[in-house]
Simulated assay, not measured.
Amino acid sequence: MHRPEDAPTAFAAAWNAHDMDALGALFDADARFVNRFGRYVRGADAIVAMHRPIHQTIYRDSTLANELIDVAAIGEGAAIVHFWSRLTTGAAHPAGPHSVDTLIQAVLVLADSGWRIRALENVTLADPRSGAPVLRD
Rank of each mutant, 00 (worst) to 15 (best):
E121N: 12
P53W: 10
L68S: 09
P128W: 04
G114R: 00
H18E: 06
A44W: 02
E76H: 10
A111R: 14
D70E: 14
E67P: 04
A46H: 01
V41P: 05
T57L: 14
T89M: 10
A95F: 12
L87G: 02
L135V: 08
L87S: 04
L26T: 00
S85H: 03
I80P: 02
I58F: 15
V71P: 02
M1C: 07
N122P: 06
G96Y: 08
W115H: 01
A91Q: 15
A46Y: 01
R3E: 08
T89S: 14
A119R: 07
A126F: 08
A73L: 08
S85Q: 13
H51Q: 12
A31K: 01
A44M: 05
V109S: 11
M1H: 04
A119H: 13
D28V: 03
L68D: 04
V134G: 03
G90H: 01
R86N: 15
L110M: 11
P53S: 09
V41A: 14
E121T: 14
I69Y: 05
V123L: 06
I74W: 03
I54Q: 13
H51R: 06
V107R: 12
R129K: 15
L103F: 05
E121F: 03
M20A: 13
A17C: 10
I69G: 09
R3G: 03
R86Y: 13
V100L: 15
A29S: 13
A25I: 06
G77F: 00
F83V: 04
A72G: 06
L135C: 14
S99W: 05
L110N: 06
D137Q: 14
D28T: 07
A7C: 13
D61M: 12
I54S: 12
G114M: 01
F37W: 10
V41E: 08
D6Q: 05
V71E: 03
D101V: 05
Q56G: 14
R60K: 15
V123P: 02
A73Y: 08
A119T: 14
